[in-house]
Design a protein around this nucleic acid. Structure first.
Length: 350
DNA sequence: AATACGGGGCC
DNA sequence: GGCCCAGTATT
């Protein structure tokens, strides 16, 4: 039986095809909030294992608010966009200290928390609290652009449109249904219009322009960058890590010294025996492509102590530090190389 | 309005 | 190798 309107048709399709996601089995606003932060610019399948580990490690606002940032970043390691973890941690402290430990129910209140933007505020308010408010993400933007044949929709217009569409009955399900449609059927390329529940209302499909709605933005080439990485190894085989500044790229993460080198570390490198170069590691970010060039340095009689953003780490302790993917690769490679019973000298023939 | 900000999976 | 993802903060 055909539905009278796209809202009902969409919800019926959502009920029929509902995917299993761990955060859909809970009504805990904190859990839903965590899932929405993790899902920012990140696919469902990538999030699931992180979400499970996170909820086991930080099961409540109190647990998260009481944790060290280093532990928080270890849990987030590999997910990317680390400001999400730092902001979520800060926001948990705000909720604990100023909001009586309760997640705000209204989108405008949620919006004030660090890391919560227009989309996430609407998603949490509607899904966790049943508020009638829109949640416009990239999927919704695409679906609505096609339904109404919008070439370059402005965020404010999209927002108004979506707000009008959200039903009072099941706002959270409706928002998720819209996103789900975008993720599974109304995809960026080759949308599966033949199985779309709102096909008969889709203006772009009627005009045959669905692949160009919204209009794709022009790509720009990303700059290339080279970073010298100092793999500093002590006589006992420990590797030196430094902590990056909390602001900016990979903020708060640990790494073998790259572009960020405290004076004491520079002095240590100057006094160390230069060893061979390791294989370069290329890492592609969203906005640049970085080639890391690791060089081994043997620190002899090093007197740099642990603390204040500096740590000597052995193989079994490495997992206790949050490293970006590329730097983790370098560190693992270095420890394997130097701890594997092969001296570096034998590699260089010295 | 444009840019910084990760990482991975898919074509 | 390019594309793009359940975006946010900053400028």
């Amino acid at each position: 039986m055909p539905h009278e309107n796209p809202t009902d048709a969409l919800l019926a399709h959502f009920d029929r095809t509902r995917r299993d996601m761990p955060w859909r089995r809970t009504s805990d606003p904190y859990a839903i909030w965590v899932s929405e932060i993790m899902l920012q610019q990140t696919r469902v399948d990538a999030v699931i294992p992180y979400y499970e580990r996170w909820m086991a490690r930080f099961p409540s606002i109190e647990a998260l608010a009481g944790a060290d940032l280093d532990d928080v970043l270890v849990q987030w390691q590999g997910l990317g966009y680390y400001s999400r973890a730092r902001n979520l941690h800060r926001a948990a402290m705000v909720v604990r200290e100023r909001l009586g430990g309760r997640v705000p129910r209204e989108a405008e209140e949620l919006r004030r928390l660090p890391g919560v933007g227009e989309y996430t505020a609407g998603a949490v308010a509607s899904i966790a609290f049943g508020r009638r408010v829109a949640a416009v993400d990239g999927n919704v933007r695409r679906v609505l652009s096609r339904l109404y044949d919008l070439e370059r929709p402005r965020a404010a217009d999209l927002r108004r449109l979506a707000d009008d569409l959200v039903p009072a009955a099941r706002p959270g399900d409706f928002n998720q249904a819209l996103m789900e449609l975008g993720a599974t059927i109304c995809t960026p390329r080759s949308p599966r219009c033949d199985t779309c529940p709102v096909y008969r209302w889709c203006r772009a499909r009627q005009l045959g322009v669905q692949e160009n709605r919204p209009r794709p933005k022009q790509k720009k080439r990303v700059p290339e960058e080279h970073v010298e990485t100092a793999v500093i190894v002590r006589e006992d085989g420990a590797l030196l890590l430094v902590r990056r500044p909390e602001e900016g790229l990979l903020g708060g993460m640990w790494e073998p010294p790259g572009e960020h080198r405290p004076a004491a570390v520079r002095a240590l490198i100057d006094g160390a025996d230069p060893g061979p170069e390791m294989e370069p590691v290329v890492h592609v970010f969203s906005h640049k492509r970085v080639t890391y060039r690791p060089r081994i340095h043997h620190a002899v009689g090093a007197s740099l102590p642990d603390g204040s953003g500096v740590a000597w780490v052995t193989g079994e302790r490495l997992s206790g530090y949050a490293l970006p993917v590329a730097q983790a690769r370098i560190a693992r490679r270095a420890l394997r190389l130097l701890g594997g019973g092969l001296s570096v000298a034998s590699h260089t023939g010295a």
